[in-house]
């Protein structure tokens, strides 16, 4: 963040490195039911990000001391493959992935109806196969789809997006270069229906006005991303409905 560089992130026409405008998202594609053995799964391709999410449960929580007698606990594990980034990443959990696992667990807990299954755990395994900035919100977006795919009752889908400041301008959905050499990065996730914020983090510096503008842009974008989530979930039923419909 803020690393000095001479890369021109926004050209004279106001377009970004990959040709996007300020409020343009990278292409997003979500598929469900990609894993046979998991209770629910999803695969998201968001720009250069490729992330696989598997959901198991609700099942009895182990080790036993992690059980909550009143509700289920969500155990999300965010993991980056060694080959997911340019320079080989040392495999295994590190400070960053532990933090992301925690914030994702908490964000998902806001959506899932945990009270319905006391003493259980819901495992969410997130494997980042290819990383290209914004993996935490892409993971979260895919994780909520995987949970819905697993038939876990939820109040709403969690949908995330990032905004950031690049060469003094607030733009949506930072790319890798913009993340590395920009001024600020603002990942945020909300419940799609009532815009309740379930995750917000900031790296870098933004003024109050810039923060508000960024949040506003994200809120608008989450509506579009939510459409993609819903389509991914309803797709498989639509196909068989036409096969066997009246």
């Amino acid at each position: 963040m803020g690393t000095p560089s001479n890369i021109k992130l926004i050209d004279e026409n106001g377009l970004r490195l990959d040709g996007r405008g300020d409020e343009e998202l990278r292409p997003i594609k979500i598929t469900t039911d990609v894993l046979e053995r998991a209770d629910g799964s999803a695969f998201i391709e968001w720009g250069g990000n490729k992330i696989l999410v598997a959901v198991y449960g609700p099942r009895e929580a182990y080790p036993k001391h992690t059980q909550d007698i009143e509700k289920a606990v969500i155990k999300a594990r965010y993991n980056m493959a060694a080959f997911s980034v340019d320079e080989r990443k040392r495999p295994g959990p590190d400070r960053r992935s532990v933090e992301i696992s925690k914030v994702i667990s908490e964000a998902l807990s806001a959506a899932v109806m945990l009270e319905q299954f006391p003493r259980t755990q819901i495992d969410v395994f997130i494997e980042v196969i290819q990383a290209d900035a914004g993996t935490r919100i892409a993971s979260l977006t895919a994780a909520s789809v995987a949970l819905a795919n697993a038939g876990v009752p939820m109040k709403d889908l969690v949908v995330g997006c990032t905004a950031g400041k690049v060469e003094g301008r607030i733009v949506l959905d930072l790319s890798k270069e913009e993340d590395n050499f920009g001024n600020a990065d603002l990942p945020m996730a909300v419940l799609s229906k009532n815009d309740e914020v379930v995750l917000i983090q900031m790296d870098g510096e933004l003024t109050k006005e810039e923060l508000n503008k960024g949040m506003e842009m994200i809120l608008k974008a989450t509506k579009r991303i939510n459409e993609i989530q819903r389509k991914a979930l309803s797709e498989k039923y639509a196909v068989s409905a036409t096969e066997g419909g009246e």
Binding site: D39, G57, M113, Q116, A150, G151, V152, P153, M154, Y237
Partner: peptide, 12 residues
């Protein structure tokens, strides 16, 4: 509020 999922585990 309640949700009826298409699949998912059984609750007695």
């Amino acid at each position: 509020m309640d949700v009826v999922p298409f699949h998912g585990s059984y609750f007695p």
